[in-house]
Structures are given as structure tokens and as C-alpha cells.
Design a protein around this nucleic acid. Structure first.
Lengths: 358, 358
DNA sequence: GCGCCGGATTACCACGTAGTAAATCTCCTG
DNA sequence: CAGGAGATTTACTACGTGGTAATCCGGCGC
């Protein structure tokens, strides 16, 4: 059996409670006693039992992170950042995969993940129509991503509209006028605030601001965002005979597929067609040509999300503070696929996009 | 406060212990009683307290997975598979990132991850010289990867030698004779069993078997395997003026870099140079051209590793059963970069590679 | 010299669960 | 209808920790 406080107490000739006080850095422990206890701890190799601590204190020191699938690079990198941010605060992370299963996602909201003090949740199947589910959540929760806005829950996300707009403005600044989009979702009452539609909105805003005519035929549907379909969408675009000199792909995975399709068709990137993606996943700069992308500020998202969750955990579920919405600063990363020099866009005032989310 | 067994017991008019028996599916509970208790559980929304259960039973129902970095696609996909395999068995997974820090890795082996029943560990900095560390481990542990062989611990890995050999044999079958390797590590007494050297060995075996002269200058060093360096290694290879008609990159990330460099230099893949990687990460088939690769059998690795760990957990640390070594079946996935049709290699008899690991 | 103050330490207990062993019930045999 | 085997249920307890409140002790003021 493992070493307990009791064992340490015997060796240090104090009570178990004093050991507890030393371990928890309580004041009012005599320095000599503290030293003696610490020596005993080291000697015996004592390690606190987290289950017992959790039972007694109601905290496990573990938070949950729920994503659709870790094998999607975006979520893997998000998890990487979340785990790092949690580790800074001495928290462990249980990662759950919901596999895009709506039932699982609903179940998760009603019960949370076992063994955890709180949950970071990036849903894929829930939409703003499920907002009511959030009202009944009785554990600390911070939502990630763009499916549910305006709920009663803390929410960390990215500047979809403005970042997309900046990406398209970058393409326009290269002189491109016929800019296609890959990854549009059909307009849908309940999903109008999904990431696709927000980014499409940024695209349209950029066109409008530049006085470029909006050609709906250049908005190519890929729904849901299966990366394999990016190439197919680009092939259809090419087959359609429509003229275009740039592609804005709404995720990097779609963009990589588009690069393939363009290559097959003999279109040179970026000379014939400039391409930019969204997410800035790690392999994008290894693509051939390397892929320009919008970096959504993953580290900041993770840091803020963990910070908010910790606050909620520490305040307890009782106090109902108002929900907060945070959007991370983004960067437009210019690489070979839209040849140019690196440009960094400052964070926009949150108001602009915030207005969308009511 | 949450609903406890006590609360359920009162509503169901039984003792708390009977509730426990129902929850744990004990035999010898009267069907009527069981039904009554289950109704009370549903009515009150009772959920077991995992901390208390863990305290009482010594099990947490959580296993740990420690990898260098989740943002490396290989580890993300491994984690994906491990989490899925664990979920099948009702286990949660805490994912830890050691960031390639040797001190962290050693610390992990001495204490394990808190809150977990056992650990799956894929080290990066430990080598066979650290084998002794494993002897003192007092928690269920299954090692993953290729750094430590012959330790006293269960170990799940891939057929590095044979799989690499098959990859090179594939290149040879295309008529290639000047086959370069990207990702060799300097020969090093303590690290001779690292994945690099094992794969290099497979490469040399394939050449030897085909009667092709081995040119050491075609073995290009990239150590450690930073993906960005793959392109640079390929550029150096090109600059060297050495003739070559194929590249075997020891990871897909290196291969993607090589595709870039070859493209820059105007070498057409696969016509001028055939390329194959190793790991079969998800984005490889989106590369341009799509990347041939060796699929190391991630799902099988995860499944076996979790299975072994569960066995160790259930047997308890007391019983010292002999350590097992399992190598997953691999596939050679042929895509455009080495144009051809898909080939599946059967699992080799374990002996061949096993002999290396003594 | 007495009593009080406050720092230091301790006893006691409860957190929610499940193992153990004992108690109780049920049904069958003779 | 007694006896008993087996099924079912229960009382009791410990798991390791930390909150609460009580106790202990040395030094100080009067």
C-alpha cells in the first residue's frame, strides 16, 4: 500500500493533521516541525492521494477537454495548447472525443466528464438552437468554437468575420478580383452562426469594401468540412469554367486539397491562382507551395479558456457571474501560396464581430 | 451537494450498500429491488462519485498517455486511437505532454501521472541506457515507441525494420536503384535502437537483398526529426550533385519537406524521383502529389497497448508476469508520390525484428 | 504569580463508496 | 413444522484527506 500522511506523521512524530498542514502550506506551522515533516516526506517518498483529496475537497485537479476528433490537426493543436495552459496551473486534462455525434454532445452537457472539475467543450453538432441546453449545466463550463453564441456560458473563440475579411483583403491587395471560396455551408436558419457562414460574411465584406462584384457561383459548398472534399470542390470549380484568380479556403485542410486540385489542372500557385487557408495548422508551411493561412490565435484561446474555467471553478457554480465572450487576436500568415511578405493584423475591436452574436 | 448513494437508498427504502450492489451489477440482488433502486437513481439523477470510488477501490478509471507533443500529427493520431480504445473499455485518458524534456520523462517514470491507474508512455529522450529506470516502476506501465527495448515492461511498437524494408522494396520494384534516405541519425552507441536506426537497417537490408550497392552518401542526417529540416536535407542532397531516383523519408513530415524541396528544384515526383514516407499521417494523402507512406498500424498499437495496460491494472502490480512485446501489422500505402497500386504487406513473424531487441 | 493571548498542534470527524461478515429472508426437504 | 441451504440484505468499517474546534504551551502584562 502507498505511503499515507499517517505514515509520514509517525516518522516525523507529529499528527497526521500537521502533515496535512505542511503539505498544504498552511501558516502557523513551526519551521522546525515543517522541516522535520518534509524530511519524513522525502524519506518515505510520500505522494498525496488525489482520490482522497478529491473526496474531501470536492476538487480533482483535472479538467476535461471535449473535441470532435483529435486526429484533425486543428483540434490536436488546440489540445496541445490547452494541455500546456492547464499544466501551468497544475491541472491535468482528460481529453474526450465525441466523434461528431450529436447524442454524445448533448449527453456531455447534461453530465460533464466524470472525474473533472470543469469542461472545455468544442462542439460540432450543436448549434445556437441548442442554446437552452446550456442553461441547465450545473458544472463549470467554457465553450470553444463558433457553433453556439449568446448562450449563458463563458465562450472563447476567434475573430471569424474580421480574420476572414483580412485574409480576403490580403488577396485583393495582390490585385486579385475573382476570388473563390471553398467550404461554404448551405445557408441554414439554425446554423447561420457557424464558422463557415461567419467567414463567408468576412469574405463578402472584404469584396464589398473593395467594390468588387460578388459572384455567388464562386462560393463553393463543402459541408461538412471533410478535408478530402476540398480537392473535389476545387475540381468542380475548375470544371465549371468560371474565371478565378484566387481561392480562399475556409480551413487549411480544404486549402491543401485545393492546392492538389489546382496542381492537377496545371494552374500555378500563386501565379495563376493565389491561395489562402484558415487555421494555420502546423503542416501548412510544409505544403508545396507553402500555404498562406489565418492564424486564429490558438495559444491565446487556450490560455483564456483555461483561465476562465479556473475562475468558474474557484468561484463555485453557485455564483452566477455574467457570461463572458473572448475572441483571440489573429494573424494573417503570408507564405508562398499567396507570395508576399508576412503581414500581421492587429486585433480588431471586439464590437464589430460581437454584433453578430446576439 | 450532489446526490449520493445514501440519498438513493432512502428513496428506494434499502440500505446504501444495496444501492452500491445495484450500481456495480452484483449478483444476488432481487430483480424487484434492483428495479426499485434503478428507478430511484433515475429519479434523483444519481451519479457515482469517482473520487470516493477511487479512494475505496484504489482505481480511478483513468489512464495516462504521455507523449512529447500533441501537435505532432503522429502523436495526435496515436492519442486519437488510444482515447478511442480506452473509451471502449470505459476508461478516460489524461494526456500529458513532456515536450521532449528528459527530466520530465524521468520524473514521470518515477511517479507516474497523478489520478491514473496506469500509464502509456511514448518517450523521446530516453534510450536503452535508461532501461534500469523501468525496473523500479511501481505502477502499471506500457511503453510505446522504439527508444527502449528489452526492458522489464510491456512494450507495443511497430515493425520498423521490416516495414522500412518493405517501403524500400516497393521503391526498388519501381525500378529505382539510387534511393536516398532522409532522417538518418548519427550512429550512437546508446541510441542504436532508435526508430531512425531501425528504419535505416530495413533500408540497407532491402538494398542488400536486391543486390544494390549501398552508398552512404545517400543517407542524409536529420537529427532530431524536426520536420522543417526535411526540406533542408533534401536541398542539400540536391546540391550535393549525387544522382538519386527515389527518396525514403523516415517520417511523413520529413517527406513533405522533401516534396517541397524537390518541387523547388524542378524534379518531378514521381517521374524523376519517387518518394515514400513513414507514419501515414492523415494529411499525407492531401499532399501534392499525394504521399506514399508506411502505415504503422496505429489502431492496432493503441488497441494492444490499452489492452495490455488494462491487464496489468487488473492483475495488480504485485504479480510480475513476464514483459510482452507486441508489434503491430503494417501496410505500405502507395499513392502518387511513388505512383502505383496499393500493396498490403502481411505481418512478418515477430522473430525477425525481435532479434534486434535483446 | 496568575491569567490571558495567540501561535502551534492535535483529536475528531465526515466526505461517498465498497469489502467483510453477519443478519435476515425464502423456499425446500424430510 | 423444524432444519437448513442459499439468496438477499444489512451493519459496520476503512480508504486518505482536510475542516472544525479543542487543547497545549510559552511569554507577556499586571
Amino acid at each position: 500500500m502507498a505511503v499515507t500522511m499517517r505514515d509520514v506523521a509517525i516518522v516525523a512524530r507529529v499528527s497526521p493533521k500537521t502533515v496535512s498542514n505542511v503539505v498544504n502550506d498552511h501558516p502557523n506551522v513551526h519551521p522546525d516541525t515543517r522541516a522535520r515533516v518534509q524530511r519524513a516526506i522525502a524519506e518515505l517518498g510520500y505522494r498525496p492521494n488525489h482520490s482522497a483529496r478529491g473526496l474531501r475537497s470536492g476538487r480533482t485537479g483535472v479538467i476535461g477537454l471535449a473535441v470532435p476528433e483529435l486526429k484533425q490537426a486543428y483540434f490536436a493543436e488546440l489540445a496541445d495548447a490547452v494541455i500546456a495552459a492547464a499544466a501551468k496551473r497544475g491541472l491535468s486534462v482528460i481529453v474526450g472525443q465525441l466523434g461528431g455525434d450529436r447524442e454524445h454532445e448533448i449527453e456531455l452537457l447534461t453530465h460533464g466528464l466524470p472525474q473533472t472539475d470543469g469542461l472545455l467543450f468544442s462542439p460540432e453538432q450543436l448549434g445556437s438552437e441548442d442554446r437552452d441546453l446550456l442553461a441547465d449545466v450545473d458544472f463549470p463550463l467554457v465553450m470553444l468554437g463558433e457553433w453556439i453564441f449568446g448562450g449563458p456560458t463563458d465562450h472563447v473563440t476567434m475573430h471569424n468575420v474580421t480574420a476572414a475579411r483580412s485574409a480576403v483583403e490580403h488577396l485583393i491587395s495582390l490585385g486579385r478580383r475573382r476570388i473563390a471560396v471553398i467550404g461554404a455551408h448551405p445557408e441554414d436558419e439554425t446554423r447561420q452562426l457557424g464558422p463557415s457562414n461567419l467567414r463567408i460574411q468576412g469574405y463578402r465584406e472584404a469584396l464589398a469594401a473593395a467594390g468588387i462584384e460578388h459572384d455567388p457561383r464562386l462560393e463553393r459548398v463543402v459541408a461538412p468540412w471533410h478535408p478530402d472534399d476540398g480537392a473535389e470542390a476545387a475540381r468542380e470549380l475548375i470544371r465549371s469554367g468560371l474565371e478565378f484568380d484566387a481561392v480562399f479556403a475556409l480551413t487549411d485542410a480544404l486549402a491543401l486539397g485545393a492546392l492538389r486540385a489546382l496542381g492537377e489542372a496545371g494552374r500555378v500557385v500563386p501565379d495563376d491562382v493565389a491561395v489562402i487557408g484558415f487555421d494555420n495548422i502546423a503542416i501548412s508551411h510544409l505544403a508545396n507551395p507553402s500555404l498562406s493561412s489565418v492564424d486564429p490565435g490558438r495559444a491565446e484561446i487556450a490560455e483564456m479558456a483555461v483561465g476562465m474555467l479556473v475562475e468558474r471553478i474557484e468561484w463555485g457554480t453557485g455564483s452566477s457571474r455574467p457570461a463572458r465572450l473572448h475572441k483571440a487576436a489573429f494573424d494573417v500568415i503570408v507564405r508562398e501560396s499567396s507570395g508576399g511578405t508576412t503581414v500581421t493584423a492587429p486585433t480588431e475591436p471586439a464590437d464589430a464581430a460581437q454584433a453578430l452574436n446576439g
